[in-house]
Write a protein that binds this DNA or RNA. Structure first.
Lengths: 140, 140
DNA sequence: AAGCTAGTTTTATAAACACTGAACCATCAA
DNA sequence: TTGATGGTTCAGTGTTTATAAAACTAGCTT
């Protein structure tokens, strides 16, 4: 059973993973290099080894980082594609509300309209509303 | 004491605010309209009124939404500029690691707090940081 | 005024979270 | 094999979070 049980991390999961100062720090460190040794975290973080393991596990489960094992050492890599996917998710909320369906009124502030380049996200996420997303992208 | 003590919500704070399914749902709802009545949340969310108040308070404190009071009713507005600021923060991590300042360990115990180049975004001008974003896109 | 209504605050509780020491599992080095 | 090392898992602890019932505040409507 549980054949390759997809973690299927939602946006909220990823946000929660990033919503801890320690983990955000880890992610930032990883952004600076291509690969980050686990041992480095022991030196840069003010927490014990088990806690490091605890946090990195959360980041892995959220899909934010991947792990490579070499001997007894671990090396983490930031999943930049997942971050970009996340940016897309947020970005969709940032522009002005869509043309309005349902006669909701109040279209006050008219500023802040902008467009976004290609944003080639691979990763067919399980959101299933990709069509919707594209439509939104086009109407910006 | 505490003269207008800016909450100064960090990225981790904003992420934490978004890292709850209920709150992410609220934010998504607000993205669809210019203003969202609090009463709507009572209908669309499967939680009690006090809990709604609890969650909206968190979103306000994180700076993600603003409130307008009209009579006894409340109306929330998504702070899209804050979201765009958040996108900037993530976006910076997404591209490949910069020029490779060598994989050497320069881990000072002070936690790598290298704020990225000239990102002193005053969160008002929406046009100003557009250039920044484009720049990133181009060097990407 | 009294009564109703939209939200908040208080209080309480069960669950989740962050953290650590101790024990553990691998791998490398003698 | 024995020992040391890099990380994980386990068991326990204190803290934070999400939740709602009850009580409350403020604005409408008679």
């Amino acid at each position: 059973m549980t054949p390759t049980t997809e973690p299927l991390s939602t946006s909220a999961d990823v946000f929660k993973a990033l919503g801890d100062p320690i983990r955000w720090n880890i992610v930032q460190q990883m952004a600076e290099v291509a690969e980050l040794p686990c041992s480095t975290l022991e030196e840069t973080l003010p927490i014990s080894k088990p806690t490091i393991s605890y946090h990195t596990k959360i980041l892995v489960q959220a899909g934010l980082i991947s792990v490579r094992k070499q001997g007894r050492s671990l090396f983490y890599t930031l999943r930049r594609d997942v971050l970009q996917q996340l940016v897309d998710d947020i970005w969709m909320l940032a522009p002005e509300p869509r043309p309005v369906r349902e006669g909701r009124v109040d279209h006050q502030a008219g500023a802040g309209r902008r467009r976004r380049a290609g944003a080639a996200r691979a990763q067919a996420s399980a959101t299933a509303d990709t069509a919707d997303r594209e439509a939104v992208l086009l109407t910006w």
